Computed example of a mutant assay.
Amino acid sequence: MPDYFLDFSVTNINTIVERNAEQWAVNKLSFANSCVMVLCLAGKADYVFSDGSTVSSKKDRILFFPPKNIRSGKADPEEPWHFISVNFDVVNLNGNRDVFQSLPGFIDSVPESVRTKFKKLSAVWKEKSYLYKLKCRILTEEILYDLLNLEKSNGDPHSHAREIEAVTDFLQQNFTQKISLEDIGKFHQLSETHFRKLFHQVTGMSVKEYLIKLRLDYAIELLSSGEFNITETADLCGFCDVYYFCSLFKKKYGCSPSKRMQKKR
């Protein structure tokens, strides 16, 4: 299930390795805080994890290893594997769900555009030219962005997912306006009960909760800019009642809008 509010930033690239290895092997490899993403360009290797589960690499498969993931691995000498590995740090910027919770352990048959970005990553890292770490962070974020979108489009199990996505797109574009059930109903052909249930399954929240989150996230932007007072912010975010806005804001962020404004000064 895609996280519609997932947001993250790659803060550091620790190392990028490209190898064509016959004798490659690792034993109980793990990183406390960093993530690893590996693209197999050719050949094969087998991984065994601390819980006894296994996974194999194959051409055009990307493997993901989150922090604290303990694994041992060995290349197949009859099919030496050629791979590009990216070790990086990532920070979650919104909510409790991180990027690796939104990705499976591996993705097969990645598009050529992703392969090209991996190869560019490897080349930029080897050259170490001006601003190379910045370039590598940007490329890594682009790869993760592409893969998250690929997983979203290929892996959504809900038969009416496109209708729900049409609703979320409408809400994202119009959340500052007054929105009725009739407005939302134009984007799906489901019963109201079925729609509410399906929307919650896909987004993890009700329509009302989704709309409130959009408005409160926008309120943070407006208040942080220092250009709008609380009443103006509430109105611009689609709240008719400033007191209701303040109550929701404090419940979500643990402080009043005025306190939030003071922190930004």
Rank of each mutant, 00 (worst) to 15 (best):
P157N: 08
A75R: 01
N92A: 06
D156Y: 07
N94R: 08
D89I: 01
Y132M: 02
G105Q: 11
S122R: 04
K74N: 05
R162W: 01
I107W: 09
E151I: 13
V91W: 04
V110M: 03
S85V: 10
L131N: 07
D108H: 14
Q101A: 13
G73T: 12
L134M: 11
S129A: 12
F83D: 04
H82A: 01
D169I: 03
S85W: 13
H160N: 06
L131C: 11
I138D: 07
I143E: 03
S109G: 06
V167K: 02
N87P: 00
L147W: 08
D156H: 11
I84K: 01
P104H: 06
Y130N: 12
G105S: 14
G95I: 13
Q101F: 03
F100R: 01
V90M: 05
I164P: 07
A161D: 01
P111Y: 04
L147D: 01
L121V: 11
W125Q: 07
N94T: 14
K178E: 07
V99L: 12
L144R: 10
R162T: 11
L144W: 05
I138N: 07
Y130I: 10
N87L: 15
V110N: 07
V99W: 11
V124W: 00
R115W: 00
E112Q: 15
S122A: 15
Y130C: 08
Y145Q: 12
S159L: 07
N174E: 03
S159E: 12
G105P: 08
S113K: 09
Q101R: 12
K120I: 08
D146P: 03
H82E: 10
N154L: 05
L171Q: 00
S122L: 14
K120T: 15
E151K: 14
T176E: 08
E165H: 10
L147F: 09
I138C: 04
S122D: 13
L147H: 08
S129V: 05
R115I: 15
E112I: 14
G73H: 08
L121Q: 05
L139G: 03
V124L: 01
D98G: 01
N92G: 15
D108Y: 11
L147S: 01
